[in-house]
Write a protein that binds this DNA or RNA. Structure first.
Length: 554
DNA sequence: AACTGAAGAGTTGTGGCGCCGGTGCGCCA
């Protein structure tokens, strides 16, 4: 039974193929909008089909409802199958190249007979692309560097998918086997992408684990690859490995299975095979080491720090007192200001910054100066309705190519908080980008630089900066650099965040939420900060409201 | 294809950048 996400994928694929075929563009918009809606829908499509309520969903009319019904009931979509006979679906892989869209792909296909990335790369190398009207040497170079970037992709799963999947499995296994089951591996270390999902169960019965895995419904191809290891293929596309650990060795095995491989190897070299321990705490105690948080088990230096009880105190999700970068339905968010404020109260926050896009980002329905003033009225009203949460009048202000901001200084001065964002020209040179961001930080009204590099993990490389200069100016101007908690971004990434922290730069962890649910992405940003060795004092939004307002100078 | 608003028909996702070629078009946020 296809879930909402799988159905949305099919709709998007249909839209892309139809666009290549040259169908009515408004039809495509409708399919894509419906797909976006499904991604955020709380109810399952299957349920809606059964109750014949699909067309009650905004953006789903009779046509798409019939399509969804067909997919739910038969598991297939005949129109999509027919379309794939006409338009090879391998063409879609070329759309992943930054700068290549459906128009270009159509021409590569019709005029050069190119159907996939391998053929496209070969043609670009042979200078065949520039023979097409409207293409030249620069385009060829862009295509080649784009393909090189795509070839670096690991096919690993985002932590944003891996962690919830591992949590669900651990919960199901624990309930069925009635033993402790822990998440291990790269998921536990909060790596930005994960190659597989590793779990450790406090049970030496691997057969029972395999049976429980089968009952979970999320796995195929379940087998015992070793007497004590049950594996299977997860629907999300990675391997699941569950270690059957003797309860008396549960802690020490969890340590071994958490990795990183180099880290565990280094420990074994220093301490031998290590003692058997029921819990990880006991394991560290037996080694006479301060417990090392999983996120720090990458750098061997941490072993020395643990020896002398000198590990940094790491930030925790419970340290976070508010979210300073998010969106409402005033721009491209889906929740009202009141809904976002209420959700923040449920999460125990003290404050929330309403930072919708500025007018320059038209596609996101950016807020113009005139609408900004209207928004302040609504923010004040919500402040009265949800007195537990202090809503800040903020903006995610577009940075233009010349480093100027989308709002004039007089308007910025009236805001409680200014988040500056680069969305264009991120492929410019390191010198140009550094100069631009320095200019932004030197604006006295700018408080935060959002998702500084603009990377999208495994999709867009993002910009490069002379970080030393960026940190120096951030320190000098008192600008906070964001760790964007969205698992597709995680920007700044762990290593750069660690360097920033060491340089004394203040960090801030924001979700950039576009709906209520995304406020919960905070833990991924906290994971990055922990991997960077950052404690609560290094993060702006751990501060109490009064202290935050003081920092803002308001 | 869906929505609006009441009839059928018109509207829907905007504007700047980069590349190519000499003014326009595709791509992207």
């Amino acid at each position: 039974m296809p879930d909402n996400r799988a159905l949305a994928e099919q709709l998007k694929m249909f839209a892309d193929l139809s666009e290549i075929k040259g169908e009515n563009p408004f039809r495509l918009i409708a399919y894509r909008r419906a797909a976006d809606t499904l991604d955020e829908l709380d109810e399952s499509v299957e349920q809606l089909v059964r109750e014949n309520r699909l067309t009650e969903v905004p953006g789903i009319g009779p046509g798409i409802a019939a399509t969804l019904k067909e997919m739910v009931e038969t598991g297939a979509w005949s129109a999509l199958d027919e379309l794939q006979d006409e338009v090879p679906s391998t063409l879609l892989t070329m759309l992943d190249i930054p700068g290549v869209g459906t128009k270009s792909v159509t021409r590569f296909y019709h005029e050069l007979g190119i159907t996939d990335l391998v053929q496209l790369e070969a043609s670009a190398r042979q200078d065949d692309i520039r023979k097409l009207k409207g293409f030249g040497a620069k385009q060829e170079a862009r295509i080649l560097s784009g393909i090189a970037f795509l070839n670096q992709r690991t096919g690993r799963l985002s932590i944003g998918t891996g962690l919830p999947a591992a949590e669900l499995l651990a919960e199901q296994l624990s309930a069925r086997l009635e033993v402790d089951v822990a998440i291990a591996g790269s998921v536990r270390r909060m790596c930005e992408t994960v190659g597989n999902l590793d779990l450790v169960a406090a049970s030496d019965d691997a057969h029972a684990i395999a049976t429980a895995l089968a009952e979970s419904g999320a796995l195929t191809d379940i087998q015992l690859t070793e007497p004590s290891i049950a594996t299977g293929k997860h629907a999300a596309g990675v391997e699941v490995r569950v270690l059957a650990a003797d309860p008396e060795e549960y802690g020490s095995e969890l340590f071994r299975w958490t990795g990183s491989r180099e880290f565990v190897a280094a420990c074994e070299q220093q301490f031998g095979a290590g003692p058997a321990a029921e819990s990880e705490a006991q394991f560290f105690e037996a080694l006479n080491l301060q417990p090392i948080p999983p996120e720090l088990r990458e750098s061997l230096r941490m072993i020395d720090l643990a020896r002398t009880n000198a590990l940094p105190r790491l930030i925790e999700v419970s340290d976070i007192r508010g979210d300073l970068h998010l969106h409402s339905d005033w721009s491209d968010g889906h929740g009202t200001i009141l809904e976002m404020a209420t959700a923040a109260r449920e999460r125990g926050y003290e404050y929330l910054s309403i930072s919708d896009h500025s007018g320059g980002l038209a596609i996101a329905h950016g807020v113009t100066i005139e609408r900004l003033r209207q928004q302040w009225v609504e923010i004040e009203r919500a402040n009265e309705q949800v007195p537990e949460i202090r809503l800040l009048k903020a903006s995610e202000v577009e940075v233009h190519l010349d480093g100027s901001l989308d709002f004039p200084d007089e308007v910025l001065a009236e805001l409680d908080l200014v988040v500056a964002s680069l969305h264009s020209g991120l492929n410019h040179s390191i010198e140009e980008l550094t100069e631009r961001i320095v200019k932004v930080m030197r604006n006295p009204h700018v408080d935060i630089i959002a998702h500084p590099t603009g990377r999208i993990i495994e999709r867009r490389p993002g910009g490069t900066y002379d970080w030393e200069t960026v940190f120096k100016v951030a320190l000098e101007t008192g600008t906070a650099l964001e760790i964007n908690a969205n698992p597709a971004r995680l920007d700044l990434r762990d290593e750069v965040a660690a360097d920033a922290h060491r340089a004394g730069v203040l960090l801030v962890i924001d979700t950039d939420a576009h709906d209520v649910r995304s406020l919960d992405l905070m833990r991924y940003g906290v994971g990055v900060a922990r991997r960077a060795g950052v404690g609560p004092e290094g993060v702006l939004n751990t501060r109490p409201l009064a202290s935050l307002l003081d920092w803002l100078g308001r």
